[in-house]
Design a protein around this nucleic acid. Sequence first.
DNA 1: TACTGAATTTGATCTGCATCAGGAAATAGT
DNA 2: ACTATTTCCTGATGCAGATCAAATTCAGTA
Lengths: 234, 234
Amino acid sequence: MANMTSHIHCQNCSMAALCLPYQLDQDGMARLDTIIQRHKPIHKRDVLVNAGESLKCLYAVRSGSLKSYTIDDNGVEQIIDFHLPGDVIGFDALANSQHRSYTQALETAMLCEIPMSSLDELAEQMPGLRRQMWRLMSGEIYSSKQLLGTLNNRSAQQRLAHFLITLADRFKERGLSNRSFRLTMTRADIGNYLGLSVETISRILSALQAEGVIDVQNKLVNVLEPERLRELAQ
Amino acid sequence: MANMTSHIHCQNCSMAALCLPYQLDQDGMARLDTIIQRHKPIHKRDVLVNAGESLKCLYAVRSGSLKSYTIDDNGVEQIIDFHLPGDVIGFDALANSQHRSYTQALETAMLCEIPMSSLDELAEQMPGLRRQMWRLMSGEIYSSKQLLGTLNNRSAQQRLAHFLITLADRFKERGLSNRSFRLTMTRADIGNYLGLSVETISRILSALQAEGVIDVQNKLVNVLEPERLRELAQ
DNA sequence: TACTGAATTTGATCTGCATCAGGAAATAGT
DNA sequence: ACTATTTCCTGATGCAGATCAAATTCAGTA
């Protein structure tokens, strides 16, 4: 069945450099492209994967944003990641072939679906793909351990500043503005992720605005003094 | 040059099931074994890898324990991991072929050294090894994200209880007692890892002992009521 | 356009843990 | 065995951020 996005391929995807095709040659990209399936967009609040589901495929984000979270014994949600275009979702499921977390769209999002069985075969034949898998997983290990350091010894303001800087940097990598962007997650999501209450997030955003470091209008953030913000993050 | 541990091989290593050889057949293990180098033990406080060093090889812990940490802009150490026998060290370095953290021995430790170049070749030829690499890295992603959840929304007591439970479970996986074990790290190390002060760690250990949940004599921990402890961790 | 529930903001109060301080115990070095 | 140094414990105090409360704004829907 034809769909409106059938003309999208790894070869012409602007996120390729951040995603699995990184450093593959034209032939490699074409081979990877053949195993990837592209479907209709998913919408805000749609759940892409449930914790406990068996791992059928990885997902690459083409547009939009999502959050991943676990639900603990008390039924409390714990957000562990926000996904932007170019990110690959599902690496934490490889250990036991079972998804460990829920993933939900924060806004309308387009995804590429990469079947694990085919990926495994391709990885055997393509050293570049294998290395990129390692690179992406290693990067995820590194960034989550970095986050540990951020959450452990830092004040609420430092955490939030760090969050904004990291987000801005990620937008820049993706060819978007790192000075002006939209928070697709709620204040509650940010607080949950950073281990802070909603009220604290709101208060600190107001304080940063009062000091002229940023300008916040609802979901829209303007970074007025990037250097000040970076200092505040330490 | 012969050394005193030359008779150790993956084929007879008791940690093989937790380590890279997992699910390899005899032939596979033998091939992996040939690329692995085994050296003299390293001693307490010896530094195995420095942050910034280029990635030459991964290390597998055969005996002893180590800690990995980063040092932030202010020169403050942030512990991100404790390594036990069977653990593989260095996955966070694959992203940019450069170690991201320091790794230091907490006690005398024996290590296996796995050259990256050879590992890459072997992974091409051996699907089982490739899958185990994915499995181990995925597991590390999962556990560090789990830890986020633990540190974010939990009290000091819950964090420490969680730490002790997790450590006990890891000892059990390794064929050791999960009821009685030795903390090779200092209270300061535990506090650093969990985002708590030394004093808090000390106080809570005392409190848990007073309640009869555990018995602590210096570095030695006896878990008297595992179920209570597990409840306290939530 | 009006209605409705969700998200955000701001204020007031309270508490868990950091910090400061001092002493005891254990470990390492000679 | 003895000393120096690190590690550990316990008490007192203060504060950052949680929690409780309530008003306001926003977004989705009919």
